[in-house]
Nucleic acid binder design. Structure first.
Length: 106
DNA sequence: ATTCTGACATCCA
DNA sequence: ATGGATGCCAGAA
């Protein structure tokens, strides 16, 4: 399964779009839901190529931190977008997954 | 097949 | 809580 193949990113795309504003999911969580063939790192790869109508900013790592690292995006963009939706970040740039973490209906 | 790398996760200091 | 090292899974060379 190639990661750049639409069939691969579609489920990821759809799941990420199902995340309501003000809520966030971790890469590992998404990978676990989609099942084998999907890993946290793979989700990141898909996110990098997606965008557009996909709220990729609602996908963060398990530490409640943004993983953009300023590689393909401005470092503060993700945090700013989330704050715009009501997600509050600590001074260190971490948000409470316990509070904002979203569990899809499964 | 072997080795590196990555928008991660988990453990340790 | 933060930063560094190690492990996983799935590509790419």
């Amino acid at each position: 399964m190639r990661l750049d193949e639409p069939a691969y990113r579609e489920p990821v795309d759809e799941l990420v779009r199902s995340i309501p504003p003000g809520r966030v999911m971790t890469y590992g969580q998404i990978a676990a839901i989609l099942g084998p063939g999907y890993t946290a790192r793979s989700i990141g790869y898909v996110m990098r190529g997606s965008g557009e109508d996909v709220p990729w900013h609602r996908v963060i790592n398990a530490r409640g931190r943004t993983s953009t690292s300023g590689l393909t995006l401005p470092l503060d963009l993700q945090r700013e977008l989330l704050e715009r939706e009501g997600v509050q970040f600590s001074s260190g740039g971490v948000c409470s997954l316990k509070q904002y973490g979203w569990e899809p209906a499964a």
